[in-house]
């Protein structure tokens, strides 16, 4: 449980620290716009795919299997 909590927490803090230490890059005409639909769909699909890949095995054996079995009976 300790690992489950802090093993995730500490790397996330390290990433935040690393980002804070980076120098700022001014927005220019070459920057990628982070306000349009493209950005929203990109961010959403990355979260869905990477999250899905991480949890799908557990989900398939837990809730999904449960659901399918209920229907089978």
């Amino acid at each position: 449980m300790v690992v489950g909590r802090f093993g995730v927490l500490l790397p996330a803090l390290a990433i935040a620290g690393g980002l804070a230490a980076k120098k700022r890059v001014p927005e220019g005409p070459g920057s990628f716009p982070t306000t349009g639909m493209l950005w929203i769909s990109l961010l959403a699909s990355v979260i869905l795919i990477v999250g899905g890949l991480t949890f799908l095995p557990s989900l398939a054996l837990g809730p999904i299997a449960d659901h399918l079995q209920l229907f089978a009976h």
């Binding site: 795919i49 990477v50 899905g52 890949l53 799908l56 095995p57 398939a60 054996l61 999904i64 299997a65 399918l68 079995q69 229907f71 089978a72």
Partner: peptide
Amino acid sequence: SIANDVAKYFAILPAIFVVLYPALAVL
């Protein structure tokens, strides 16, 4: 490379677990 993984899940996961849960064959 990472987008490829989605299809691989659909190939392998049902294959592994269909023995345990036959209903997973729909995946």
